[in-house]
Computed example of a mutant assay.
Amino acid sequence: MRSETPVVELPIAVETAYFRLNNKQIFVPISAKLASSALQWAQKSGRRQVEFDFAAEVHDSQSGRIAGALRDTITVRFDTERYEEIQQNALVYQGGIILPPGNYKLKFLARENESGRIGTFEDDLRLPAAQPDRMQLSSIVLSSQLVEVQKSSEVQTKGFAPDAKLKELPLDVGGERIIPSVTRVFTNQQKLYIFFQAYVSEKTDLNHLRAGLEFFRNGARVSQTPTVAPAQVNDRTRTASFRISLPLSTVAMGRYTVQAVVVEAGGAQVAFGRNYFALRLPVAPSVPATPAVTGSSEN
Score class of each variant (00 low, 15 high):
residue 23 N to I: 07
residue 23 N to M: 06
residue 23 N to S: 15
residue 23 N to Q: 14
residue 23 N to W: 03
residue 23 N to G: 13
residue 23 N to H: 11
residue 24 K to I: 10
residue 24 K to A: 12
residue 24 K to G: 09
residue 25 Q to I: 01
residue 25 Q to F: 07
residue 25 Q to W: 08
residue 27 F to L: 10
residue 27 F to T: 02
residue 28 V to Q: 00
residue 29 P to F: 04
residue 29 P to W: 06
residue 29 P to N: 03
residue 29 P to E: 05
residue 30 I to K: 08
residue 31 S to V: 04
residue 31 S to I: 01
residue 31 S to M: 04
residue 32 A to N: 06
residue 32 A to S: 11
residue 32 A to F: 03
residue 33 K to Q: 14
residue 33 K to S: 14
residue 34 L to N: 04
residue 34 L to F: 04
residue 34 L to I: 13
residue 34 L to M: 13
residue 34 L to G: 09
residue 34 L to K: 03
residue 35 A to R: 13
residue 35 A to H: 09
residue 35 A to F: 10
residue 36 S to E: 11
residue 36 S to N: 13
residue 38 A to H: 09
residue 38 A to Q: 13
residue 38 A to S: 14
residue 39 L to Y: 06
residue 39 L to A: 14
residue 39 L to M: 14
residue 39 L to H: 06
residue 40 Q to L: 13
residue 40 Q to N: 14
residue 40 Q to K: 14
residue 40 Q to F: 09
residue 41 W to F: 15
residue 41 W to L: 08
residue 42 A to N: 12
residue 43 Q to R: 14
residue 43 Q to M: 12
residue 43 Q to G: 06
residue 43 Q to H: 13
residue 44 K to N: 09
residue 44 K to F: 04
residue 44 K to D: 08
residue 45 S to P: 02
residue 45 S to D: 15
residue 45 S to N: 15
residue 46 G to Q: 05
residue 47 R to L: 08
residue 47 R to P: 03
residue 47 R to H: 09
residue 48 R to Y: 15
residue 49 Q to H: 08
residue 50 V to T: 08
residue 50 V to W: 02
residue 50 V to F: 02
residue 50 V to H: 02
residue 50 V to L: 06
residue 51 E to D: 10
residue 51 E to W: 04
residue 51 E to Y: 03
residue 52 F to E: 11
residue 52 F to G: 14
residue 52 F to S: 12
residue 52 F to M: 10
residue 53 D to F: 05
residue 53 D to V: 12
residue 54 F to A: 09
residue 55 A to C: 05
residue 55 A to M: 12
residue 55 A to H: 08
residue 55 A to S: 13
residue 55 A to E: 12
residue 55 A to T: 01
residue 56 A to W: 03
residue 56 A to Q: 02
residue 56 A to I: 01
residue 56 A to L: 03
residue 57 E to Y: 08
residue 57 E to A: 08
residue 57 E to F: 07
residue 58 V to K: 00
residue 58 V to Q: 01
residue 58 V to T: 08
residue 58 V to R: 00
residue 58 V to A: 01
residue 59 H to Y: 11
residue 59 H to S: 12
residue 59 H to R: 15
residue 59 H to K: 14
residue 60 D to N: 08
residue 60 D to V: 00
residue 60 D to Y: 00
residue 61 S to E: 10
residue 61 S to P: 00
residue 61 S to C: 02
residue 63 S to A: 02
residue 63 S to G: 03
residue 64 G to Y: 00
residue 64 G to C: 05
residue 64 G to Q: 02
residue 65 R to D: 05
residue 65 R to L: 09
residue 65 R to M: 03
residue 65 R to T: 04
residue 65 R to V: 05
residue 66 I to N: 01
residue 66 I to S: 02
residue 66 I to Q: 04
residue 67 A to G: 13
residue 67 A to K: 06
residue 67 A to Y: 06
residue 68 G to R: 00
residue 68 G to I: 00
residue 68 G to Q: 01
residue 69 A to C: 04
residue 70 L to H: 03
residue 70 L to D: 04
residue 71 R to Y: 07
residue 71 R to S: 13
residue 72 D to N: 10
residue 72 D to Y: 05
residue 72 D to M: 04
residue 73 T to S: 09
residue 73 T to C: 01
residue 73 T to L: 03
residue 73 T to K: 10
residue 74 I to P: 01
residue 74 I to W: 07
residue 74 I to L: 12
residue 75 T to R: 11
residue 75 T to C: 05
residue 76 V to P: 02
residue 76 V to Y: 09
residue 76 V to F: 05
residue 76 V to H: 04
residue 76 V to A: 10
